[in-house]
Computed example of a mutant assay.
Amino acid sequence: MTTDLNQFMDTHKELLNEQLLLKISELEAPPKLKDAMSYSLKAGGKRIRPLLLFAVIKSFGKDPILGLPAALALEMIHTYSLIHDDLPSMDNDDLRRGLPTNHKVYGEAMAILAGDGLLTYAFELIAADTSLNPATRVSMIHLLAQCAGPEGMVGGQVADMEGENKSLTINELENIHHRKTGKLLSFAILAGATIGGAVEDQIRSFQQFSYHLGLGFQISDDILDVEGDEDVLGKPVGSDTGRQKSTYPSLLTMEGAKKQLQYHIHEAKAALRETKLSTGLLEQMTDLIAVRTY
């Protein structure tokens, strides 16, 4: 990474982490619920979605902090999804980011409620963002509900579960991951574009960027599940194979998956150039997804 990208990511990630915990601490809610919500937020992570949102706003020459409430909401929804994914009735994982999963610490009932709390609080944060006009807030809430709900992440998760122990086609697999992984990335990018003041042609280019970036991100995940380092990932590798899930390496071979990853990275960067904006940071973040180790 370049110095500029490192500085941008470090600065905005630190701010995001501080604000996530501050927002939870300010809630008038049962202490154990707040502890459980904070626990999974404190576990860290790449924070790639909010960082993309900030970088898109910056590409318009605007202050990325304008997107802070939306970024907080997005990371809360992502974190809720991980808490629920880890539950025994879902992926039944014991570790997340190198730490015991939420239900292992707080029990299943409190983990479910912590996820519910993060999900619903996310929409409150956007609704209360007075830096955006009311129409834009409604538009952002609508977009987030679409991306996170039954047409997006939740629907993708259902399709992913139903695809276990089945041999999927590459088109079926792409459709699952476009919804399960890609839709929240799409929100990050399109919300940033909306706050930045994108015109119609730029929105279309950012939609293409988000589509290819989302698939590239998931292919990278599938590759790491085979070749990744457990100590770096903070969770066991090979879990997809254990659940007999179709993945890009299983359908395309590892070499084919890596070629497909490079194709989507190339197309994502081509879409960025079509925006005619200062997208240097976004291009570097796209490259980072292609070579990430966690």
Rank of each mutant, 00 (worst) to 15 (best):
M9R: 11
D10C: 13
E14R: 14
L15Q: 08
E28F: 07
P31W: 15
K34T: 09
R47H: 12
L51C: 13
V56E: 13
S59K: 06
D63H: 14
I65N: 10
A73I: 06
T79E: 02
D85V: 02
D86P: 05
N92C: 01
R97Q: 06
R97V: 07
K104D: 12
G107E: 10
M110G: 00
I112Q: 07
A114P: 00
A122N: 04
E124A: 12
I126Y: 00
A135R: 11
A135M: 11
M140Q: 10
I141K: 12
H142Y: 10
L144V: 03
C147H: 11
A148L: 06
E151L: 14
E162I: 08
T169D: 01
N171R: 14
I176A: 02
K183V: 00
A188E: 10
I189K: 04
G196I: 01
G197W: 00
D201G: 05
Q202R: 01
I203D: 00
R204H: 09
S205P: 09
S210W: 03
H212D: 03
Q218P: 11
I223F: 05
I223K: 05
L224V: 13
G228V: 03
Q260T: 14
E267C: 03
E274M: 09
E274D: 06
E283V: 01
E283T: 01
T286Y: 01
L288Q: 15
T293R: 13
